[in-house]
Design a protein around this nucleic acid. Sequence first.
DNA 1: ATAGATGTTGACGTAGCGTCAAGGTCAAGG
DNA 2: CCTTGACCTTGACGCTACGTCAACATCTAT
Lengths: 259, 259
Amino acid sequence: MDWSIQDIARIAGTTSRTLRHYDDIGLLKPSRIGHNGYRYYNQAALVQLQRILLLRGLGLGLPVISQVLDDETDAAKALTGHLEWLKQEQHRLARQIASVTQTIEAVKGGGEIMAEDMFNGFDHTQYKDEVEERWGKDAYAKGDSWWRNMSAEEKAAWKQRSQQLGADWIAAATAGIAPDSAEAQTLAKRHVEWLTGIPGTPASDARGKDDAGKRDVKGYVTGLGEMYVADPRFAKNYGGADGAGFVRDALKIYAAENL
Amino acid sequence: MDWSIQDIARIAGTTSRTLRHYDDIGLLKPSRIGHNGYRYYNQAALVQLQRILLLRGLGLGLPVISQVLDDETDAAKALTGHLEWLKQEQHRLARQIASVTQTIEAVKGGGEIMAEDMFNGFDHTQYKDEVEERWGKDAYAKGDSWWRNMSAEEKAAWKQRSQQLGADWIAAATAGIAPDSAEAQTLAKRHVEWLTGIPGTPASDARGKDDAGKRDVKGYVTGLGEMYVADPRFAKNYGGADGAGFVRDALKIYAAENL
DNA sequence: ATAGATGTTGACGTAGCGTCAAGGTCAAGG
DNA sequence: CCTTGACCTTGACGCTACGTCAACATCTAT
């Protein structure tokens, strides 16, 4: 009393390919194999198959199903673990749905994918007085016109790059690594490269300049490091005073060794 | 003013492998390629990359992202379509979570994966009078003890198999195919094989019997077909009177040609 | 000159089968 | 006996978006 591969496939509501796959991976062997190599399945195999399909329908992976079938007592544990995963997935989807909805609104309103409001609160002008006092009106004017002439997308790219840098600094600081470690120094290098992107600063002006210009950069960078610590408006970009202190130390070492 | 592959990878928060992949599939080409084959990316490429990563973070596939980048106006459409997909996924997950939760309870209570309550409402005894009247007390007793002696899993397997058969009948009937078509006749064959699994019926008793026994099966099967139509308790398994009529026709043709 | 970081292409692995391709087996009919 | 059609076999590629070696070339700094 057994069925051919097509027969059980139809009875159980799956395909013969699936059954061959289960045979290949050892999940469900045929109860009998003909002299011609044909696979035949009996009632017990049908029961197993239906359990497999039930669990698969619940979203479990085939290796997990295999374990569950081997050790019945694990069923509740496996399912409970799986349930956790499902809930996380649902939360992830909920967040994605919120983001997509928001982005659709932004695109409809602004027309571009990166709309203006994506970098609200990231306005260059908030440091006007500070910059003019330290590096002169000319420096601020250059930087300001640079910012204003950027397209929305370029602004967004800059913002994201800046935030990524800040996030990486915070991650490094909280990881407890040393300021002179390779990782921190790589970040310092990135930081200087980032500064080089802002026109009107010694860092950007020094590109292609002589040694005197480069010495200016050295002082500029170390001075910046101190400012990050002293000024809470900057310190918050690096996770507060502690993080900013880490940035200052790493920058000072980098400047001494490379600038 | 450009960066190496590692540089933008770090700036944008991804990996160099991803960038090479995007180059391979034509999603994001480097802005410049050195004489040595090195990839270099400029500001514009960084902007593109960040748009890609934004959309990917929303769950869009790379081919879709490619389209969106080509035709900016499609962005809202693509995102709206994607939103639909996300919502469906969330509903699917919600259903899976409900099922898994239910299954966990069942496993904890019953110990087996297929618990008793999975075949509530599928009790054999509901046709007691009908069976005794038509085929005698002996037939019913055989079938009843057969059912009672099954394990929970065998019962569940049988139930699912029966329901699968019913679902396939309904699908075929509503598809509007002919009762003498190959597909309907395949179903009829399955139906007889299914009947053969119930002890106490002429179909099962006839296994290995002579021609007289086989003639009994013929009458039994055609009689059953008529009953499916006449009795609403059976007809509902095949989608009501219309579906049952289709089953009856297909069975009559099958019996005439093969039994 | 050499070591170490970084770059290149090429290819395999992933989850779970769908989908040919090429060829053997079996039951029924002429 | 031969053919036809249905069903079976193994083998291998395809799909998503890269991660992860491997083998080898190049740049940078000492």
